[in-house]
Write a protein that binds this DNA or RNA. Sequence first.
DNA 1: CTTCTCACG
DNA 2: ACGTACGTGAGAAGT
Length: 641
Amino acid sequence: MRNFRHRVAGDEVSVQVPEDSRDLDAFRLWVHDQVARGGIVAVDTETSGLDTFSPTYRLRTVQFGNAVAAWVLPVEISREMLEAARWALRLLPSLTIHNAPFDLLVIDRHAGVPLEELGPKVTDSRIYAHLRDPRQQQEGGIGLGLKPLSAAFVDCNSPDTQEGLTAEFHAQGLTKATGWGRINLWTDVYLLYAGLDVILGSRLLPVLRHEVAKLGVSRRLADFEHRVMLLCARMERRGMRVDVDYVRRLVGRLEEEASLHAKRASKYGVTSVNATAQVSAALLGMGEQLTERTPSGAWKVDKAILLDLADLDGQWQPRETRTPNPLADAVIRSKRAGKWGTSYGVALRDGLDVNGRIHCKVNSLQARTARMSISSPPLQQLPSGDWAIRRALMADAGHRIVSVDYSAVEMRVLAALADETTMKRAISEGRDLHDFTAELIWGPDFTKHHRKVGKGVGFGKVYGGGALTLSRQTGAPLAEVKNAIAAYDRVYPGIKRYSRQLQREARADGYAVWTPSGRRLPLDRDRVYSATNYVVQSTARDVLCQALLDLQDAGWADHLLLPVHDEVVAQAPESEAEEVAREIGKVMAMDFIGVPLDTDPEVGGRSWGSLYMKKAATMTENDAWYAANPEAARAAELARA
DNA sequence: CTTCTCACG
DNA sequence: ACGTACGTGAGAAGT
């Protein structure tokens, strides 16, 4: 038995590491004692890295601990150690894990205790930390990591175990990338820190729970978030099939395109199209006028500016308003192909498990508004104007992709929260909200331009934007935008009233707002105007999460693939896909404080990208299901026109 | 590490 | 009184 002593918050604590069968007997006694006491035991794992589903992934240790003692089981060394860990995981009635989805999926895949068995008895301290204060360190919060939370709530002198291990990696000739997998398991600092993490985690949970209760955050919310987290973990485990041959061809094509245009750019002295300083210098040298600067004072040369110089509109079509600048054209084309190739193509190609599936991390409770995020790779952010990337993501064999989104959910949530009667009436009557707004402001003869400005004003209200930004965003003259905002406030007085009330309450409440779900959202003191946006964005997120749980209760959990803010991506067997989409849409549709939240169910072919194809010919040429069902492709083209 | 850019809702 | 665009993840370049 390896034995370490350490001090945590003034108490002496112990970390024990069994080396053989005899040592495991002591571990088993300790586990029985924990069961008898009925307390919560903290669990953690050390692994070869973060890519849980990669073919070379290894589980190295499983740790158990309470406030004063930790056990580090080196499960990597023998079947017996792994069995002891499994036995304890199954026997212990109540566990806490910091950032539970990670360890739950590791244990599900590499220790053979299913998510469905372990999940329901786990409390995730990260959820409580987020409910207390969702802000990252950079945003003025404590952060959501075990280290900063332990320093704040357990022991300000607790060692930075990550930092300490990085130093040890270097001492053993390893890096941050290789260290987790290759550090000698019997390294003292590795074992000690593995043990300390569960002792800290065990002490952290009760403090955070108390803090959350003290603030008055809804108790139901923690339970809600745990159920959402477990459902998202199931989606992460399922992953999504990738068309590997397609993605290889795609990467090749994009790399070719990127280098072709990079070559064009090099003729103007730009050796690297991503080097903004080079690009701006070359453009100025060609006699172009640049007007905008970045926050640090450099010339701004982003996509919008380059598209203008290249005489291209938002759809990359010639505007014929000037002579296209060939360098600007080459730079944007090369940058886009390069980004799509590396961020999406390569990420999909190189992130697969042995079955050719991608398992993105589905972070169910992430943003400071509680919005979800998806990472590695970020499937919520794939290009939507072009189907080429999404085409790589596929339903399972014999299945079709289903996508159900809410119609204008943030505007509807705002109308409901603000109790804006005119807007609520328009929604209940099934009117197109932006048409309705334009008509109220400009009369029945409103133009497309009016609709665009009115829509922009609506977004401005949701985001807290002003006339100047809106004018820049829509290209409409400032005076016109100012008039439109004034008119908007006249026709929808409830929105402005609600926004002012929310800001008043926020100032009176220590710069925080509350959502209907009982969540507290801290604001930046110098950005109180964002109060409305925070409540609206967060509530729309809670709506989607409630819908996910409703779908689970209705028996659709195994069909779900991804949440995308106001949309659920799912799959269904070919023969019943249309019906499944309708049913999912029905379950998701709900009434929110008297405002209907309608859904729009769509069924694609085999690939996610097929939902983004506009022409029947494109569908039949690029999607196996539509190739076999050309009449459905024609119907889909008509529906999308 | 920070800055800039760019993809999404 | 006025005005403020919101939230993410990721790669490349440069310090």
